[in-house]
């Protein structure tokens, strides 16, 4: 089957690739671009391990075709830190022991970053419902929720100080 030529941007870098029409964005990110931070936990949109942003919107990359990336901006876990400097969420996840095995962590970080950009002051319930599409089998979510709430509080006080 002939391949499709796609021009897109990943974490701000211009990227071109050829893909089979059946390949998902997740397949392309991992197998063609070797950005393996997004994980495949299910391939059916149920676990959120493959979470990325498409033009800023949170999506399951296993439910997007590679060809659909044409002309859009993709954001992945690899683009969250600013060089050596971790995003506050990344730092708090480490501090709060919010990861055990860490396989869900990239997806959860991408998802919570999207949440905090939309809603800088979420309640615990809002965080829990926002993350209801991101499965974690190790932590029972307790420390994840705490890390997110703590980051949000810090970011809010940073913002206050800045103004």
């Amino acid at each position: 089957m002939s391949k499709i030529h796609v021009t897109t941007s990943v974490n701000g870098d211009a990227v071109e690739f050829l893909c089979d029409p059946r390949e998902t964005l997740l397949d392309v990110l991992r197998d063609r671009l070797h950005l393996t931070g997004a994980k495949e936990g299910c391939g059916t949109g149920d676990c959120g391990a493959c979470s990325v942003t498409l033009d800023g919107r949170l999506v399951c990359s296993c439910l997007v075709l590679g060809a659909e990336a044409e002309g859009h901006e993709i954001g992945t876990i690899e683009g969250i830190a600013n060089g050596e400097e971790l995003h506050p969420l990344q730092q708090k996840f480490i501090e709060h022991a919010a990861l055990q095995c860490g396989i869900c962590t990239p997806g959860i970080l991408v998802a919570t970053k999207a949440l905090l950009e939309k809603n800088p002051d979420p309640t615990e319930t809002e965080v829990r419902y926002w993350l209801a599409g991101n499965l974690c089998r190790c932590t029972g979510y307790d420390k994840i929720i705490r890390a997110v709430m703590d980051t949000a509080a810090d970011l809010r006080s940073d913002m206050k100080e800045a103004t």
Binding site: T36, E78, I94
Partner: peptide
């Protein structure tokens, strides 16, 4: 920790 929060 850093490896696991950066996707590395």
């Amino acid at each position: 920790g850093v490896d696991k929060v950066t996707g590395r």
